[in-house]
Amino acid sequence: MADFVADRAPLYYREFDKVVNSLQSGYFLTAIRETLKRLPNSEHFQDYHFGEILASIFIEDILGLKKIYCKLSLNSAENQNAYKMDLLCYE
Rank of each mutant, 00 (worst) to 15 (best):
R38K: 12
I32A: 14
Q46H: 08
N41L: 07
L72A: 13
E43Y: 01
L54N: 02
P10Y: 09
C89V: 15
A6R: 04
A9I: 14
F28W: 07
L87A: 12
E43R: 00
S22A: 14
F16H: 11
Y48N: 01
Q46S: 09
N75G: 02
L72S: 13
F28H: 06
K84D: 15
D61R: 05
V19L: 10
I59G: 05
K37W: 00
S76H: 10
G26R: 01
L54Y: 00
A6P: 01
N41V: 04
V5D: 00
L54I: 13
R8T: 04
L11K: 07
L72N: 14
D7R: 08
D61T: 06
L39F: 15
G64T: 04
F16S: 13
Y13T: 10
E15V: 01
E43C: 02
L29Q: 13
E91R: 15
L88W: 07
M85Q: 14
L74N: 07
E60V: 11
E60K: 12
N75T: 00
G26Q: 06
Y12V: 12
Y69E: 14
Q46E: 10
C70Y: 05
Q80L: 04
Y90S: 09
A55N: 12
V19Y: 02
L63W: 03
I59R: 05
S76T: 15
F58V: 10
F45G: 01
G26H: 03
Y27W: 11
D47C: 06
Y90P: 00
T30C: 04
N79C: 13
E43H: 01
R14C: 11
H44M: 09
V5M: 08
F45L: 04
V20T: 08
S22G: 15
L88E: 14
Y90G: 07
D7Q: 07
L88M: 15
A77T: 10
R38I: 04
I62Q: 07
F45M: 09
P10E: 02
E15R: 06
F45A: 04
E52I: 02
A31D: 03
L11W: 15
L87Q: 13
A9S: 11
S42A: 09
Q80G: 01
F16I: 04
D3G: 05
R14M: 14
N21V: 10
D7V: 05
S25E: 08
L74K: 06
L65F: 10
V20M: 13
S73R: 15
S42E: 11
F4D: 10
Y69Q: 10
A82G: 15
L63R: 05
Q80Y: 02
N21H: 08
Q24C: 14
K18V: 02
G64V: 03
Q80D: 09
I32S: 05
K37L: 01
Q80P: 01
F28L: 09
A82L: 14
F16Q: 09
E78T: 01
L36N: 04
L87H: 07
G26N: 03
P40G: 06
L23T: 03
Y83D: 12
L23F: 15
S76A: 06
K71A: 12
V19W: 03
A31H: 02
L11Q: 03
V20L: 12
K66F: 06
Y90R: 12
L87N: 13
D61Y: 04
H49R: 02
V20F: 10
Y48T: 04
Y69D: 10
A6Q: 07
